[in-house]
Write a protein that binds this DNA or RNA. Structure first.
Lengths: 281, 281
DNA sequence: CGATCGTTTGACGGTGCTCAATCACCGTGG
DNA sequence: CCACGGTGATTGAGCACCGTCAAACGATCG
């Protein structure tokens, strides 16, 4: 018996998702110039000749918030590159707990880790309206051969993806919840800066629950950690709007590796700072 | 002022490691046929013609236990593929805490995540005698162009590497220390099986301290978790020799995602099993 | 304006971190 | 041969942090 779920099926309460072969039909069929994808991936494209678009086109899909772009366990026939918006990469355990393993924003690859397998290891669900380039796995090899720029861009993108995975691990490793949250915020701010947005005023695209899952803590604890950092004068928090008031203080919180909570590190940093201000005044 | 460290410098007590330009000299210069690397990476090599080795040779380095193959912060001029032995990928924080971010065994890439940057994000230290293929970054592009098999193998290897990174995150995410350890052991056993070794009798190549760092817990807690799983009849533990006595029980422990410790899941699994044995007897 | 979902805060209990002592193992040197 | 220090593993005691349960508040949308 094969169970089919529509791609907008509310993500999986303990159910195993199988083969949404009809998925593609649900995404608006659309195309974008390959050129656009390449510049997104940060590769200088050789101007070649005068011919404007010898590189061809790439299918572009649109995903609605809450909609699944990729189903965990589905056959791997496409990998994706995020063009706009953001998605979460998730794995659902048998008891229904949804583990968020990564966030994907503009320029990030989705599903690439499944390329070496038959089935997707993680699902991908949109956090907001998003558009993604869809690369058919069968065509990837041909595209790489035909377009060296794409080939090089893909390799660099995987390298970046691997580096990002390491940073996720660095967010999960420390004991203190405040430290985890601080590291997440610094990481998130850096990503915003890379994309030309403000690294001070952040708009989190996910509910506390998802953030908590990514950090490996309870969502109440995330809330408390936000309150703590706000109370310490490091952040201003209004729901999902976060302003980094004191970047140095936040960085101090990221540095407490194991022992002690962020409070001590923060106090030390602030003490050092107030001392220098006193000297200045 | 530029500080130079010999590559066998005991790994970094809070010191920043800079530019070991002399590193290469310390590794035994040696070469292996490219063919060997390709089969390691799991790619069927086309037999081409009768010419035995048109693919050329790859430099092979030897690393001693405790020796650093890659220094955190060093310039990226090589990436590596492990041929034998195993290494840990580490980041050292300012307070001297050493965060283990990954383990690299036969077939794993090292340093690839730094390919998109100027400097290595993580260091790599051998856990035992190891040999690695060394790929000069400058030559990687040429190698890929010259040898499509290598090109394809590299892409698949990065995909596998990315999948492994996700599994590390799954080991770090659960609250319970026993769950983390159980997931690590299952993951480790799978790797052993892939390499044709016994998935029941494991020889951990690292001290408790490193394992604890990888799992994001205190090393005493790792010890306690081992004792717990041994007491529950799931493992037999003798120092770094671990035997998986009850694989189903161990799997049950990996499944407790957030709430509750592994004890409840284990009891439930064992209860179910004893019930079925009663029926059988 | 009511319903639902998300966020915040409180109280309580449990898990794991810290500090500390003990033990096993190993290579060295008396 | 055994004493010796060094490293790594184990176990215990005490306490802090976080997970769970619960309630209240706020936002969003119909």
């Amino acid at each position: 018996m094969t169970i089919l779920y529509a791609p907008d099926f509310p993500h999986a309460e303990g159910a195993t998702l199988i083969e949404p072969q009809l998925a593609h039909a649900a995404f608006a069929p659309c195309r974008a110039p390959m050129q656009e994808l390449l510049t997104l991936l940060g590769v200088r494209v050789p101007v070649d000749d005068g011919s404007s678009e010898p590189l061809g086109w790439v299918p572009l899909w649109r995903v609605r918030p809450g909609q699944a772009l990729v189903h965990e366990g589905a056959a791997v026939d496409h990998i994706h590159v995020v063009r706009s918006g953001s998605l979460k990469c998730v794995r659902v355990w048998e008891d229904g707990y949804e583990q968020v393993l990564a966030l994907a924003g503009r320029g990030d690859l989705i599903g690439f880790e499944s390329l070496s397998r038959a089935r997707h290891l993680t699902g991908a669900v949109a956090l907001e309206d998003a558009t993604v380039y869809a690369l058919a796995v069968r065509e990837v090899e041909a595209m790489r051969r035909r377009c060296p720029s794409f080939d090089r861009a893909l390799l660099l993108a995987t390298s970046r993806q691997l580096a990002a995975a390491g940073q996720i691990a660095e967010m999960l490793a420390p004991v203190s919840a405040e430290t985890r949250l601080a590291r997440f915020l610094v990481w998130y701010a850096e990503r915003m800066a890379e994309r030309g947005e403000s690294p001070r005023r952040l708009r989190l695209r996910m509910p506390r629950r998802d953030l908590a899952s990514l950090l490996g803590v309870a969502h109440e604890t995330v809330s408390r950690s936000f309150s703590f950092l706000a109370g310490a004068g490091v952040l201003r928090v209004d729901n999902r709007e976060v302003e980094i008031v004191d970047r140095d203080g936040l960085l101090a919180c990221t540095r407490s590796t194991r022992t002690g909570n962020a409070e001590s590190a923060l106090r030390a940093a602030q003490a050092g700072r107030s001392a220098s201000t006193e000297v200045a005044s």
